[in-house]
Amino acid sequence: MSRGENESVVTLWIWIGIGLLFLTTLFITLLIASYTKSVKKNKQKVMQMVRNTQSECWENTLYLQEKDRERLAEELHDNIISRLNLIRLNAHYKNMNELNLDLKNSMQLIRELTHNLTPPDLSEIDLTDLLIDYLEQVKTNIKVDFYPLIVNENSINNQIKLNTFRIVQELINNTLKHANASLIKVYLRISRQYLILIVEDNGSGFNAKNQATGIGLRSIQLRTKQIKAHYKLKTQPQRGTKYIFFVNTIQQ
């Protein structure tokens, strides 16, 4: 092969190399651009999910606040205002001792209402004691059996404690209003890692599919979601209702 031919071959391979380098660079550039676009798109999705989650949390918080306000309004109207109105109507027909007793009972109802809406400092009281105190008040309206089995209550943080307490309140409130029950049983199991709550009654039960949002279940679902818990509702018409609640306390 002549010198000119060798130079031509070398030149050809140089151009081939340049072409391959250009194609490789172009491929890498396109790959980087595609990756950057994908990252940006995924980041936008994540940000949108965060915004949606924040919005959902805010809506859930507002809903729970509204439920607490409704509970307060109902308690004020059904119990305290009605009782005070009776005292006013009967003021001319009762002696001072009877009026004092009626006022004392009304004051006790107000204290109970305040306690139920704003529990004591959660860091200063165990969930078991909080429930015992509340259930003692409920016993004036219905028979209540409480079965605690506690291994380590220190594993429960205040968020779990408060939401569990509110869930029990909501469930018992539903039973008193709708179930026509004569007995409520509450089981509480607390181990080193898990909390299990069972609330059941011997009432009329209901069709869960037809009344999934009609008896305060949404409030219970939201509180359960807030502490990453799981729950199951078992009920049938005329067969009573059982609510099973489970949470891993270590993961909080």
Rank of each mutant, 00 (worst) to 15 (best):
D145R: 10
N157Q: 10
T175R: 02
A179P: 01
A181L: 04
L176D: 03
K161E: 10
N154I: 13
N141P: 03
V151N: 15
F165M: 09
A179K: 03
T175H: 02
A179C: 01
N141M: 13
V168M: 09
N141V: 04
N173K: 06
N174C: 09
L149S: 15
L149H: 12
H178P: 03
V168L: 05
K143T: 14
L149Q: 14
Q159Y: 11
T164R: 07
I160T: 09
I160H: 11
I172T: 07
T164K: 08
I142L: 02
F146S: 05
R166M: 08
S182W: 00
R166Y: 14
N173M: 06
N157I: 07
I167Y: 01
N152M: 09
Y147P: 05
N174D: 10
P148K: 02
L149T: 14
F146Y: 06
R166L: 12
K143P: 06
N158V: 12
V151M: 12
L149V: 13
S182N: 11
Q169D: 04
F165A: 08
Y147M: 08
R166H: 12
N163K: 13
N157K: 13
N157E: 11
R166F: 11
K177G: 02
N158A: 15
A181W: 02
T164V: 13
T140C: 13
V138Q: 01
T175K: 03
H178V: 00
V144H: 06
I172G: 10
L162M: 11
F165D: 06
E153D: 12
Y147I: 07
S155K: 14
N174S: 14
N154G: 07
N141G: 08
K161G: 11
I172P: 04
S155P: 12
L171R: 11
K177P: 01
H178W: 08
V144T: 03
N152T: 05
I156T: 08
I160Y: 06
L176Y: 02
I150W: 13
V168R: 08
N157R: 09
K139E: 10
Q159P: 03
I142E: 06
K177T: 02
S155A: 15
A179R: 02
N180S: 13
P148C: 02
H178K: 00
T175A: 12
N174A: 10
